[in-house]
Amino acid sequence: MLSLSLRLVGCSSCSSRISHPKAPASRLHIFSPPKQLNSARQTNNTVHQFSQLSQLIQIPDHTAKGTEYSYSSMEYKMIGPEHCDQVLEHLRRNFFADEPLNKAAGLCQNGSSCAALESHCAEAILDRMSVMAVDAKEQEQGVCKVVGVVLNGILKPGDTAKALSKLDTNDDAGFRKIFDLLHRHNLKYNLFEHFDVACMFDVRILSVDSSYRGQGIANELVKRSVAVARKNGFRLLKADATGIFSQKIFRSHGFEVFSEQPYSKYTDVDGRVILPVEAPHIKMQQLYKAICGGADQDEKEQSR
């Protein structure tokens, strides 16, 4: 279940949520110097004023493409079990309620917990393949603020069938609806059989803090996930992208569509839509990326 939840659409997905405005250089007017400086004293005063002003304004570092920016205080780190509480708190505030399928199922309210979903997240964290973005300048109870996460797990043949068999014992009806769709779709369109691999790098959740969206954080998290997969010897990555924004992000990193499930066609025996997902999200996509080359190949794929 991968959706970047964007306030722009309510991520109603990586669904994967971006409301923070982008700031093109042409619109960043911080200081306009006078046309003439009549004296050295006036020059010194101007320099002093600019120095004071720049201390009050955090000026973004523009990327090479010029369309996204990130703050110099941003750091990316591997997620360990010791970060579990921080990561779950981030997801409660920024992902659980807004992800398209979660929202359609009424899984939980913003800021509230969901035991079944949190257990699903904690399971991925234990695989030590996940990455987080932290703002080193923002402290929460003495630790850096988590502003983005991508939760990755190790998926082996048989894992999905086992997870599906356990759904009946889960007392959360909304959770059962969501994962019944995901698990059955993955079993029907089986990447293991198609690619003949012993395990897959499973990108499960992509989330960015609503105050930090539009800075390229989600893209960087996916890029680093691909690097982690390569470093650990994986041949194949997969992601179940539930919203159009996360789908776009993954395709920009060389992921390809293996299968799709339109939400309007996922119905019960009476023909009623089981998960009435709000527009513009119209389908779930199972995406994959085969790792068969070096970093140069990834860069070529992203530039397409």
Rank of each mutant, 00 (worst) to 15 (best):
S5F: 10
S15E: 11
S15T: 10
S16T: 11
P21K: 09
P24K: 14
H29N: 15
I30D: 09
F31W: 15
S32Q: 13
P33F: 11
P34E: 13
K35P: 04
L37T: 08
N38D: 13
A40Y: 09
T43S: 12
N44F: 14
N45H: 14
V47M: 10
H48C: 09
F50R: 12
Q52P: 01
L53F: 14
Q55N: 15
H62T: 10
T67W: 11
E68S: 11
Y69E: 09
E75R: 14
Y76M: 00
K77T: 07
K77D: 11
I79S: 01
H83S: 07
R92M: 05
F96L: 13
A97N: 12
D98F: 11
E99V: 06
P100C: 13
A104G: 05
A104C: 07
L107E: 10
Q109T: 12
Q109M: 14
N110I: 12
C114Q: 12
L117N: 00
L117D: 01
E118R: 04
E123G: 02
L126P: 00
L126W: 02
S130Y: 09
S130H: 08
V134Q: 08
D135Q: 02
K137Q: 12
Q139K: 13
V143A: 12
V143T: 14
V149M: 04
L151W: 11
I154P: 01
K156L: 08
P157H: 01
D159R: 04
L167S: 04
L167H: 06
N170L: 07
D171P: 00
D171Y: 07
A173G: 00
R176S: 00
R176V: 10
I178W: 09
L182R: 08
R184E: 14
L187W: 08
K188I: 06
K188T: 14
N190V: 04
F195L: 01
M200K: 06
V203M: 15
I205C: 13
L206C: 10
D209N: 10
R213N: 07
G216E: 09
L221R: 02
L221E: 01
L221W: 03
R224L: 06
V226C: 04
V228E: 08
K231F: 04
N232G: 00
R235W: 05
L236M: 02
L237E: 01
T242C: 05
S246K: 06
K248M: 10
I249R: 01
F258R: 02
F258V: 00
E260M: 06
Y263D: 00
S264Y: 03
K265D: 13
D268H: 05
V269M: 11
V269H: 13
I282L: 12
K283M: 10
K283T: 01
M284D: 00
L287K: 03
S303W: 11
